[in-house]
């Protein structure tokens, strides 16, 4: 089984996770830029974070046979902090980089005017650079937030097939698929969505334009949720082709729209390093 996790925050995960993910079939991941659990207070912190998403983390992933791509954005939560706003000015530099396959995570957290502006500006960046957009939907007042997000997406002029709305549930999936956007689901141990509920949604809505991710991060989460969702699909009668479609071909099709998704087997080795630093112990 080959798995592409279209949304996972590997920066927060250990090398044991990489090993377990590889063993479970994960061969490619997309790591969206998001907040880090503790607020950042200056643009420079973001630039170092972006540099790590583009440099250190792909190197680390490759050592475990996994290809790592990322999405770059000023996330909605921190878009509310005026100290972080200047990040928007430098984003086009980062969005132009080879391993950036979408603008994201953008969207709403508390639906403030600041979030409105950041979302609109970053959707324009996606249009300018021909990139897809990964849009986070808010945890609070989700249905209203999702509806409002769809309105802003429509107003922006970006093609709906270039947009995924993520963290959906039973109440928001219908409006998103009807809009022509992609529907993303984050399978979490306790919140958001479980693998069994995911199977029911797939039975009700089909496998087209659906992305399933673990969204694993620094919180209580599980980087093997993609595999567990695949197993749940098989157990309830979906065939191998349906599983491959949801967990590999769909994310490849979505992020492939960037023109930058170069999938080739990474070759772990004992010699390589990133900027002279390696994950081996006892060396640099």
């Amino acid at each position: 089984m080959r798995i592409f996790d279209p949304h996972i925050h590997m920066t927060s995960r250990t090398t044991d996770d990489y090993e377990a993910m590889y063993a479970a079939g994960v061969r490619a991941v997309v790591e969206p830029a998001f907040w880090m659990g503790q607020p950042r207070t200056s643009p420079e912190s973001f630039y170092d974070y972006f540099d790590a998403l583009l440099g250190w983390e792909p190197y680390r992933a490759a050592q475990f046979g996994i290809q790592h791509f990322c999405t770059i954005a000023l996330n909605p939560k921190e878009a509310n902090d005026p100290r972080c706003r200047p990040v928007l000015d430098e984003l086009p530099r980062y969005l132009a980089k080879d391993r950036v396959v979408a603008v994201g995570e953008i969207g709403y957290d508390s639906m403030t005017p600041e979030e409105d502006e950041a979302l609109a500006v970053q959707l324009q960046f996606a249009i300018e650079q021909g990139l897809p957009a990964l849009v986070h939907t808010p945890h609070r007042d989700k249905a209203t937030g999702t509806r409002r997000t769809l309105d802003v997406v429509k107003e922006s002029g970006i093609a709906p097939e270039l947009v995924v709305l993520d963290h959906l549930n039973e109440l928001t999936v219908g409006m998103v698929l009807d809009s022509g956007c992609w529907a993303g689901f984050s399978i979490y141990p306790k919140t958001k969505m479980s693998e069994d509920r995911m199977v029911t949604i797939l039975q009700d809505h089909g496998t087209e334009r659906v992305l399933v991710n673990s969204a694993a991060d620094w919180g209580s989460s599980d980087p093997l949720k993609t595999r567990k969702a695949a197993d749940a699909m098989l157990a309830s009668g979906f065939d191998d082709d349906a599983v491959d479609r949801v967990l590999w071909r769909n994310p490849v099709a979505f992020y492939g729209q960037s023109g930058r998704l170069e999938l080739d087997e990474p070759k772990p080795d004992e010699e390589s390093s990133f900027q002279g630093n390696s994950i081996r112990r006892g060396g640099a």
Partner: peptide
Amino acid sequence: IGALFPAARR
């Protein structure tokens, strides 16, 4: 040049 420079390799 900010958004052109990174794209040059691709």
